[in-house]
Simulated assay, not measured.
Amino acid sequence: MTLKLRWHKLTHWEYWPLWAIYYPLFPIWVFFSIKARSFFFFNAANPKMKNGGMAMESKNEIYDMIPEAHIPKTILIEKDTPASEITKRINANGIAYPFIVKPDIGMKAFGVDKIHNREELQDYIDRTPQDYLIQEFIPYANEVGIFYVRMPNEDRGKITGIVAKEFLSVIGDGKSTILQLIKQTPRSHMHLRTLSKKFGNQLNAVLEKNKEFILVPFGSHTRGAKFIDKTNKNNAHLERLIDAICIQMPEFYYGRLDVLYTDFEELSEGKNFKIIEINGAGGEATHIYDPKHSLFFAWKEITRHWNYLCKISMLNHKRGFPYLSFNDGRTMLKQNGVLEEELKLV
């Protein structure tokens, strides 16, 4: 990485490693832990999700909780299932190329890919370390993350943050190659190694003027997406829609819904959208990563959401839902760390 890119990462906190953002807040987590009388109180936040949805939870099990009408067609594939058998299953479920593959237990969009043909599928089969999901590709152009909280003793929940996600892309000028365009902005240049591996010689093509080329079709900050805070676009229609969906999910009180949609007004009206993922206790209020926000704003929002998490967990604990023991919590974090390193290689 060039000195210029290193300086850009250093002076823009959104690119800092998570430990640099969250470690200064450790005393606040300790405060909430003392209040809840458990370091791993989050387990009770969403009692029907493994570990409350903090880590090591099955995405397939979470999809089973979401009303079927609001999710893409999704099938669970066991590791080492032959491509011929997978072809039979995707055909039986009405899924066609291209489709999305993602680890059943995953994080930060590691191991998520778009598969266009049998050869790419076989390549993914060969390199994935665990069971994974095949999911129909939803061609909606926009993605938004909506954070939702509801107290267990209340009938209605609320939206506490909305983030729009701009996929990592370049715009052609009719003269420059895709490679040259990637190098023009730090956000894309930082991912050059991964993009070169994915696209190869295709990066040497000259892009037509004003034509957009999507480099990463996923709204993940770790994969280069730009996050824009759209919390001010919250409205009564959208809040009723999200609340109605989340209330149908058994014992779900805290998390972020990642949604593909065509138009924000249509989304608010409940039209033309699909929920592609729900993150529970481990979900971040990702509107904090808008480049316009300071680190102090992020710390304030993280603390605000931890407060919701603690209150919800304590109320559910009083209802009889257990916290995670210290040993089990430590084991979970170790397993999550090992898995993260494995998925980075996929």
Rank of each mutant, 00 (worst) to 15 (best):
G219E: 04
A69W: 13
G255N: 03
Q130E: 09
P17Y: 10
H8N: 14
P186I: 02
K9M: 07
E120V: 08
R193W: 01
L267P: 03
E68F: 13
L179H: 14
N93V: 04
E120L: 08
A96S: 13
P24Y: 04
E166L: 04
V338Q: 10
L309N: 03
I34A: 09
L192M: 02
Q184G: 13
N142Q: 05
F41D: 04
L195K: 04
G172K: 07
F39Y: 12
I86S: 10
E78L: 11
F321W: 09
D64Q: 15
L295R: 02
K73D: 04
I77F: 01
I86F: 05
A225S: 10
L5I: 15
Y148W: 07
L345H: 13
Y254F: 15
K108D: 03
G52V: 02
Y132C: 10
S33W: 09
V163I: 15
H189G: 08
F297N: 02
H305M: 06
I228L: 03
K4G: 08
G106T: 02
N91D: 09
I178S: 04
A109N: 12
D123F: 08
I77V: 14
K48E: 15
M49R: 06
I86D: 06
R187Y: 01
L3K: 15
G94S: 11
L192Y: 03
G172Q: 01
E266R: 11
K271F: 12
D243C: 01
P72T: 05
G320K: 08
N327A: 15
F227D: 07
F147T: 12
E266L: 14
